[in-house]
Amino acid sequence: MKFPFSVAVAIGIGLITLAGYFLNIPVLQTLRMALIEWATTLAAVALLVGIANLFTIHWNKLTSGKVGGLYSAILIVSLVLTLGVVGWFGPTHTYSKWIFNNVQLPVEGSLLALLAVILVVAGVRLLRLRSSMLSIIFIITAMVILLATGPLFGISVPGLTELRSWIAQVPAMAGARGLLLGIGLGIVAAGLRVLIGSDRPYRG
């Protein structure tokens, strides 16, 4: 089996960081904090690589004259403009806030608002796609909680608010806890596979 240098780096750095979590040795803990700090700095550098990737993809689309070229041009223009304005004036300047308030917020808010329709469509179709016990209980719970969340035209159904609280406090919490424990096990397994070099998402 090939054992390139980068595998050694990943395993070595990973083990040191992991040891810093569990061993109460000051040197290791300081080292762990330093490694995490470096990694977050590197992740910030990676962001520049990501921006370059975004730019290249859309530049290629634009220059290849494909159908979506116009959209790519729009993306590049808005990216460059924002970089210029926010970079030059700073993120809290009036101009930057103008862009944020009149582009970022309306579009992102509207995208979330789309979910108000998309999720109802999904709810309507769910039982046809998967008519199982899980789906039926899912949809009934969702409807009960929705009714208990809003003002029902001023009508108060006795016990509805209490039922909502009880569901949040007992069964929904129990399910969430079971799910979280299972996910925790999955995370440990996936992390260990990387740490022993069995999964290598990086190149060596």
């Binding site: 108000a116 999720l119 109802v120 709810g123 309507v124 179709r125 769910l126 039982l127 046809r128 008519s131 949809i139 969702a142 409807m143 929705l146 009714l147 969340t149 809003g150 003002p151 029902l152 035209f153």
Partner: peptide
């Protein structure tokens, strides 16, 4: 607050009525 309530009620109504119709149609 009021529009929120109306919206949620409409969503529940749709899931109940349209959901039942849609899933029993087949």
């Amino acid at each position: 607050w009021d529009s929120f309530g109306v919206g949620l009620f409409m969503a529940v109504l749709l899931m109940l009525v349209a959901g039942l119709m849609y899933s029993t149609y087949p």
